[in-house]
Structures are given as C-alpha cells and as structure tokens.
C-alpha cells in the first residue's frame, strides 16, 4: 500500500470514530477497540488496554490521546497528525455549523423555552455517572475526603482546577515517598 493511502486509511478510521461517538469519552472506547483491535489488527488487545490506561492518565480528551497513540505507533509523528485530524474534524464541522445557526436563533422565544427545560437535564446527566465513575477511580471510605474537598473548594471557594490538579499530583508523590521511607525504616530496624 502506498504511503499516502496508509495515512488516508488511518485518517478515515478515526474520522469515522469521531463522527459516530456521541457524548465523547467512555462511549467511544468499544468503537475504537472494534476498529483498531478487531478489524484492523493494529494493536493487540492487551496493548490496547495499556494504551487506554495511559490515554486516561494524560490531560486532554481520551479519544484524541488514543488517536495520537495509534497514529504514532503505526506511521510515526505524521501518522498521529493524520489520526488527530480525523478525530477532530467531524465535531469541528458539526459544532461550527451549529454555532453559526444557533447564535442567530438563540434569542428566539421558542428556543429559549426548550433550553429552559434542557439546562437542568444537562446538570443531571453530569451528576448521574458520578457513583459508577467514583468506584472505578478507586474512591473508598478512606479517600472519600479527596473528591469532597476538591468539589467544595472548586465550587464554593472558587479554587482553580489547575491548582487542584497540581496539588493532587504533588500529594500522590509525597505520599509515595512517605510510604517508601516507612518501609525502609522497618527494614532498617529488623
């Protein structure tokens, strides 16, 4: 297969994924797996799972991170540019059209009535998956204080999420250092 054709192929696969995954994030993981592992055999299944863990622990949308990984693995840096463009373009086109149309109808009374109903629903849709997500993120009774403190400080004290992220990373590392020291001491007195 020609080089151009290969770029086009990975571009198209991710364009398709970008165009058909509604809601983003976790909804598209089975779709990507089906394409990349099932149909194309670009990654082994365990490789895919490792990649997913990595994509989730890096900043940015998970679908973009996944696209970059697969593109890079297959065709190097230019490959990751092709897959990124593929995953970004569908929503870019759709949202741009909506923005151009919606800004003209926004003050229409009918649209305003419809959105009065939709807005509380949006909040409910954000809140609903919290319990399930909390479980899979390893939230237990012992560390429940972490999400509670984070939510309250962002919501009530208006602390920037940037500081929250930096503090959380730092705390995790300090805790690890502390644990390491303790085990070292134990071994020392033994």
């Amino acid at each position: 297969m020609g080089r151009i054709k290969q770029y086009w192929e990975i571009f198209l696969v991710f364009f398709k994924i970008g165009a058909f995954t509604f809601g983003g994030g976790y909804a598209m993981i089975p779709l990507i797996r089906n394409e990349v592992v099932g149909k194309k055999n670009w990654l082994e299944d365990d490789e895919f799972m490792d990649m997913l863990a990595l994509a989730q622990s890096m900043p940015g949308p998970i679908s973009l991170n996944t696209a970059i990984f697969v593109g890079r693995k297959r065709l190097g840096f230019r490959g990751s540019l092709a897959t990124s463009a593929g995953i970004i373009l569908p929503s870019f086109i759709v949202i741009l059209i909506i923005a151009m149309v919606f800004t003209q109808f926004k003050d229409n009374p009918v649209v305003e009535r419809v959105f009065k109903g939709i807005r509380p629903a949006v909040v409910a849709l954000i809140a609903a998956p919290l319990l399930g997500l909390g479980k899979s993120a390893g939230v237990k009774l012992t560390n429940l204080w972490i999400p509670v403190v984070v939510a309250l400080s962002v919501w009530l004290l208006k602390v920037s999420p940037v500081y929250i992220i930096l503090a959380a990373i730092l705390l995790g590392i300090l805790h690890y250092i502390y644990l390491k020291r303790i085990t070292k001491k134990k071994h020392g007195t033994d």
């Binding site: 622990s57 939230v139 972490i146 999420p161 705390l171 995790g172």
Partner: peptide, 22 residues
C-alpha cells in the same frame, strides 16, 4: 502510579464540582 493515586479520586471531585457549578 503515585502521581495518579490522588489525581484519580480528585477528578471525581472535579466532575462533582462541574454539576454543582451549573
């Protein structure tokens, strides 16, 4: 792994704050 140990539960808090802020 250490960096993620607190970050993961913190992200749950961020999602909760997203709902609360709205």
């Amino acid at each position: 792994q250490a960096s993620l140990s607190v970050l993961k539960p913190a992200i749950i808090g961020l999602i909760a704050s997203a709902a609360l802020l709205l």
